[in-house]
């Protein structure tokens, strides 16, 4: 039998539905999550199955309902809080950073905050500066939070299940442009552990360490490079915290060249951290300086020809890699 395929959005929905069937405590809240199923239609059908007691529409009150998520998680529920656009995460920062992330530590390990904050990232949707950001670095910076960046439907399902079962606050980023991407997704109840990178493609000449939206870009660039006789390895950390440093360093030691890519800003971002990890762990094995590729250091412009310049493309990665490999 051929493997079943789902879109990324369907994989997310399936993980939620299965977890909600498995565990009564799991509930969802956010703006237009019930009948509307979110503007991206990711949650369509869930309110019909689980009812409005467990799929709750909220007012446009991100700070408030994220805080409610924290408190409910501490006291017996397992909330999955929906923040429609990653840009609105800025409104949740105090609740996530000062409350959720620290409650366990500050209470000497007494309180736990088993909640998931699901949100989106990514540009090139012509949504302009307040609807296009990729803010995963902000959360990866905070001890106490875990940060998940699935890049395929398969990973989305397995990682979201792990996120819901985790005893800690987890921020789960979905690439808006990936919702329609199809891929094999088993019907079984499987989980993917955090902190385990996945080699999406094996290669010998150069490593691409890529997250979320950038994994597809890296794979595309790898195909272009293959025609030039360059073999690229694509490795996806899948979670920026915990981070599978070992697998990344091993890959780089093997290939001796590396480009790290993340759709957040390269400066002070996830790409910067990955570059530092590689510099610390594989410096003497490198044949070229580590290269970072991320969003250009500007607010995302609306105008399509400008917006397209701000995000690394297959072509740009291909050119950079070719140069690094001396071809």
């Amino acid at each position: 039998m051929p493997e079943r395929e789902l879109t990324f959005a369907q994989a997310v929905r399936e993980a939620l539905a299965e977890e909600m069937r498995r565990d009564e405590r799991v509930c969802i809240f956010g703006e237009d999550v019930a009948e509307a199923g979110t503007p991206f239609k990711v949650l369509s059908g869930l309110v019909e199955e689980f009812g409005r007691e467990r799929v709750l529409d909220t007012p446009i009150s991100e700070a408030g309902f994220t805080g409610i998520g924290v408190g409910a998680a501490m006291t017996g529920l397992r909330p999955v809080v929906d923040i429609m656009f990653g840009d609105f995460l800025t409104l949740t920062m105090d609740q996530m950073v000062n409350q959720a992330a620290k409650a366990h530590y500050m209470s000497g390990g007494h309180w736990k905050v088993p909640m998931v904050l699901r949100t989106t990232l990514g540009a090139t949707r012509r949504s302009a500066a307040q609807h296009s950001q990729s803010l995963q670095a902000w959360f990866s910076h905070v001890p106490g939070l875990k940060v998940v960046l699935p890049s395929t439907p398969y990973d989305a399902k397995g990682l979201l299940k792990s996120a819901i079962r985790d005893e800690n606050p987890v921020v789960f980023f979905e690439d808006k442009m990936m919702y329609k991407l199809k891929g094999p997704v088993p019907e079984d109840d499987y989980t993917i552990p955090f902190g385990v990178a996945d080699v999406k493609r094996e290669g010998d000449d150069i490593s691409f360490v890529a997250t979320s939206s950038m994994v597809q870009v890296a794979l595309g660039a790898a195909l272009l490079l293959e025609k030039e006789g360059i073999s690229a390895e694509v490795i996806d950390p899948r979670t920026t915290w915990p981070l599978d440093e070992k697998s990344i360093i091993e890959s780089v030691k093997k290939t001796s060249r590396v480009i790290v890519m993340d759709e957040g800003y390269g400066r002070y971002g996830v790409a910067a951290e990955l570059a530092a990890v590689i510099a610390e762990g594989a410096f003497y094995d490198l044949d070229a300086p580590v290269k970072r590729m991320g969003a250009m250091h500007v607010p995302i412009p609306f105008s399509p020809p400008l917006e397209d310049l701000t995000v690394p493309t297959e072509r740009a990665v291909f050119e950079a890699a070719r140069k690094m490999c001396g071809k």
Binding site: A128, A129, Q130, P301, F302
Partner: peptide
């Protein structure tokens, strides 16, 4: 009005 950088919402 915004040299194309803002769009409809800005």
């Amino acid at each position: 009005y915004c040299r194309g950088k803002g769009g409809s919402m800005h």
